[in-house]
Amino acid sequence: MILPDVIEAATQVINARPPSHTHHPLPTVTPDIPRVYHEHASDVGHKTLWVVCVLMGLSSLAFYAMAWRVPVQKRLFHVLTALITTFAFLSYYAMATGDGVGVHTTVVKETKLHVVTEIVNRDVYWARYVDWSLTTPLLLLDLCLFAGLDGASILVAIVSDVIMILTGLFAAFSRDSAQGWGWYTFGCIAYLNIVYQLGYKGRHAVSGKDAKTKRFFGAISLFTLILWTLYPIIWGVADGARVVGVDGEIIGYAILDVLAKPVFGFWLLLTHDKMSRSSPSIEGFWSNGLSSEGGLRVGDVLGRGDDD
């Protein structure tokens, strides 16, 4: 019959026509996976930490031995200097054994798209900042007392030094680069005040002493300030800009620490012992303890009680 043939032909035509809307599968979008970097010390860095740890320990023993060879009135600088290397020894022992180390994570983003491209996990030796917060005030106290600086200036110098160290620690663990460089700037301002107190007021204070003392203070204070100027430079290229790796940071700080503590200590104490006649002598409580004059004794109190 004609009708079935027409229906069959129409069905074939409809099936042969392409669909009006073709649905193509959506392309699979794979986001870029950020590169993750881990910056930590190698065997070279660990060996450097151990070497400095041993040097600080041996220097401490030498300074304590030198302290016993001088009268207690002349022993203040020996005690301060020995404490400096003792704290440094403990700090380097902590770092060499894997303690006192934290990880600071830095996220690097592409500027326009704000896409994370890198994640950097870098070791930060926070024990180093604990060391500096204790040793650098003692070192400043050595220099200030040797120059005869007044108490107000000594206090200002030490507080500025603590601020400098703490802002460096905050900068090392800052959340972003801008915040870190802000803390770094505050630390540099505090350091400039230290330079003023030690370099200007210290020289003025020592000007009334003999020529040998003035020359020595000028040399050792300049030596110290030059070394201390190199510390923020190392921070800037290491923790700050991450141009230098962790090993380079360890080696750089190790060289400065050895120069600023054991070498400084031997130079100060050996010169101090040679200048024993003109070096300051401390009496009173430091040498003799609390005086018994004007104090109450147990026997006196009991005796008066019996008389009453």
Rank of each mutant, 00 (worst) to 15 (best):
M1F: 04
M1N: 03
M1T: 02
D5C: 11
V6D: 13
E8V: 04
A10S: 03
V13I: 10
I14L: 14
N15G: 01
N15C: 03
R17D: 15
P18I: 03
P19K: 14
T22F: 01
H23A: 14
H24K: 01
T30I: 08
P34Q: 06
R35F: 08
V36A: 14
Y37F: 15
E39M: 07
E39T: 01
H40C: 09
A41D: 11
D43K: 08
K47V: 12
L49E: 12
W50F: 11
V54H: 05
L55V: 06
L61Y: 00
Y64R: 12
Y64E: 12
A65K: 07
M66R: 07
R69K: 11
R69Q: 10
Q73C: 12
R75W: 06
R75L: 07
L80G: 00
T81L: 06
T86K: 10
F89Q: 05
L90Y: 09
M95R: 01
M95A: 00
G98W: 00
D99G: 12
G100T: 00
G100H: 00
V103A: 02
T105F: 02
V107K: 06
V107P: 01
E110L: 09
T111C: 08
H114W: 05
E118H: 14
N121L: 09
R122G: 03
V124G: 03
D131L: 09
L134R: 10
L138C: 13
L138G: 11
L140F: 08
L141W: 07
C144P: 02
F146G: 08
S153N: 12
S153K: 11
I154R: 15
I158T: 02
V159M: 09
D161L: 08
I163R: 10
I165F: 02
L166H: 01
A171P: 04
A172Q: 01
A172T: 02
F173H: 11
S177E: 13
Q179R: 12
G180K: 05
W183E: 02
Y184G: 08
C188H: 14
A190R: 09
Y191H: 14
Q197R: 11
R203D: 00
K209W: 05
K209H: 11
I220Y: 02
L222S: 13
F223M: 13
T224W: 07
I226M: 13
W228E: 15
I233M: 06
V237H: 04
D239N: 02
V244N: 01
G245L: 05
D247P: 01
G248D: 00
E249R: 09
A254P: 07
I255K: 08
L256A: 01
D257Q: 02
D257C: 03
K261W: 09
K261E: 13
F264R: 03
H272L: 13
D273M: 15
D273A: 15
M275H: 13
M275V: 06
R277A: 15
R277V: 10
S279T: 12
S279C: 11
E283A: 14
F285N: 04
S287T: 07
L296C: 02
D300T: 14
V301D: 08
L302D: 12
D308Y: 08
